[in-house]
Amino acid sequence: MSGFQRFLQNMGQGFLEKVAAFGRGSLFIWSILAAIPSALFRFDLLLKQIYVTGVLSLPIILMAGLFVGMVLSLQGYNILVEFNAEEAVGSMTALSLLRELGPVVGGLLFAGRAGSALTAEIGLMRSTEQISALEMMAVDPLKFIYAPRFLAVIIVLPLLVLIFNALGVFGGYLVSVSWLGVDSGAFWSQMSSQVDWQEDVLNGVIKSVAFGVLIAVIALFQGVNAIPSSEGVSNATTRTVVHASLGILGLDFILTSIMFN
């Protein structure tokens, strides 16, 4: 077989594998969605996953939110002060956080912190036959494992993003008002006049829900399809973080162009 033929063959095979993976992924999402109603009745499982994915992600979200807000207002102040518009630093910080940085940076951090853990956990459960054992005990892993995790991620990420935003605004306040001497009243009034509830806050929340769906689907799918070995699980975990991060950035562009254009 000539090199060109082999190249074509590899291309075709690669394409078919991608199509097959896409099909498996779609079926998987569909079966999780179908299992969500019964997962809602298992509040104990959902609560545990909300704790594992959400509460345990709080420290990183709190710290990151504070620092992002502080840096944002510092940079904003340095530019705005040249135009004598430093009072606008409050609204600039809030708008940047609510529209973009909150959902995007929060989503990226969450994918690294909780998405990777989800993939590793499910990959290991599969490689140690725990998932098979559940099936044999007539416990459906869709209802017991996947759907509660999927739901938990979608519930938790918007809340984490809102907390991230709040801490970011607080960080901005610390830097611009307490440190750089911007007038406190101007800081808040500019912010409240510029920020629109629906346009900014709600759109940010919608973004974070969309990122939650993306992260949950990628993390669960990679976990379920991980090759059951230590190398396979580690590769799947890496793929979760890489795919979810790129997915968040790509999806953010699409959502932004729909929402703000």
Binding site: T128, E129, Q130, S132, A133, M136
Partner: peptide
Amino acid sequence: MLFQSGALLA
């Protein structure tokens, strides 16, 4: 079913 590894929930 008794799995080779035991497959206990960790």
